[in-house]
Design a protein around this nucleic acid. Structure first.
Length: 359
DNA sequence: CGACGTGTAAC
DNA sequence: CCTTTTACACGTCG
């Protein structure tokens, strides 16, 4: 049963939306920033448009560094996630009808299984063109699309031609497509794994595919070793499926490093309405509460506690406070830079037990 | 096995 | 100089 999978990626999404809403900045380098609020320019770059990328500004980079690379016409904007989410939701609704199954992979990406609806790669290409047209007409945005026999190939194909690209890799073209691929460009192989493989003199997908499974297993464990070799061969059986959130979390950088429970807890409290809104919107309940701590040295830790299934965020906050208090006790002398709160073990559609159920 | 904590990856 | 959010795998412990 041959599958046909499409991957859609909206081109420099945040920056493109901002250019639409502020026509006066169109054509200039645009940098969308996540300001942490600590100093005027502390924070990181979320997205840069193509003009800004030409200046060497890339996502993930500290804003300070982006400022140094910017020229006089470069525009820096604070990111507005609520607005971007609205646009994203509208686009996902638009394209949902064009496929059999839609899996939203992030705010600006989606996988679509079009095996039945298209039936052939030629028809899948027509669907892709239609999706591009719909997004251009309805939202004034461009996207890049990859088509392949699985999610991995679709995703990597889409990267070949950007922006506004369309790339098709058929089953019989997979081997040639992967062959010379540097391992760090394989989706799912990050910095750590690439370094580890490099130490074994594995530099291309072909090297990885032909490497000794035994040696890989020693370094990566059985599962990951097999997974990596499959990727190198362009093999990926994971289905396109509608997903529901498994967890909801919020993080915030403190105004300054602190070990004072009231200071830190008030920052956590400030995030609770966000969590509450999401829980309500999703009609979800949770069972596990975690805090995430990032100290002055940027070391991350988590502490969690399982309580009985509830939708009451106040219960989560109480648990969070006691977890925080414990952390501070166990980490005397350390100060926190950022904190986060997370609820997980989510359940949907099932009302949590209310008082009435016991009477 | 469930709970908990860490590491890796991607956006 | 260092953001935010989510997912998942794996090891450990009881």
């Amino acid at each position: 049963m041959q599958r046909i999978i499409l991957h859609m990626d909206l081109d420099s999404f945040y920056a493109s939306i901002e250019e639409k809403r502020k026509p006066e900045i169109a054509g200039k380098p645009v940098v969308i920033c996540v300001f942490s609020g600590r100093t005027a320019d502390s924070g990181a770059v979320a997205t840069a448009n193509y003009k800004a990328r030409e200046l060497g500004i890339k996502s993930g980079m500290p804003i300070m560094l982006a400022r140094k690379r910017a020229n006089s016409e470069t525009v820096f904007l604070a990111y507005d996630i609520e607005f971007y989410r609205e646009v994203s939701d509208r686009i996902m609704d638009l394209i949902e009808t064009e496929c059999d199954i839609l899996e939203q992979a992030s705010i600006d990406e989606a996988y679509m299984d079009v095996s039945l609806k298209a039936g052939s790669f030629e028809n899948a290409a027509r669907i892709a063109e239609r999706i591009k047209e719909i997004i251009r007409e309805q939202e004034g945005l461009t996207c890049s699309i990859g088509i392949g026999p699985n999610k991995l190939i679709a995703k990597m194909a889409g990267k070949m031609k950007k922006p506004d690209g369309l790339t098709i890799v058929r089953e019989r073209e997979v081997a040639a497509f992967m062959e010379k691929m540097p391992i760090e460009k394989i989706h799912g192989i990050g910095k750590k794994t690439a370094e580890l493989l490099n130490d074994l003199d594995i530099k291309t997908a072909d090297d990885l595919a032909k490497s000794s499974l035994l040696i890989l297993e020693q370094r990566l464990g059985k599962n990951k070793a097999r997974l990596m070799q499959d990727k190198a061969r362009g093999i990926d059986d994971s289905p396109v499926e509608q997903r529901v959130a498994q967890q909801i979390s919020r993080m915030k950088t403190l105004a300054e490093d602190s070990d004072d429970i009231e200071t830190i807890y008030s920052t956590m409290r400030a995030m609770s309405p966000d969590i509450r809104k999401k829980i309500q919107k999703k009609q979800a309940t949770f069972r596990t509460v975690s805090i995430i701590t990032i100290d002055s040295k940027l070391e991350t830790q988590t502490r969690s506690e399982t309580i009985s299934q509830t939708d009451d965020v106040e219960l989560a906050m109480a648990a969070a406070r006691s977890l925080l208090s414990k952390w501070l006790d166990e980490n005397k002398g350390r100060k926190l830079r950022r904190v986060g709160i997370r609820v997980s073990n989510l359940e949907y559609g099932r009302k949590q037990k209310s008082l009435g159920d016991f009477l």
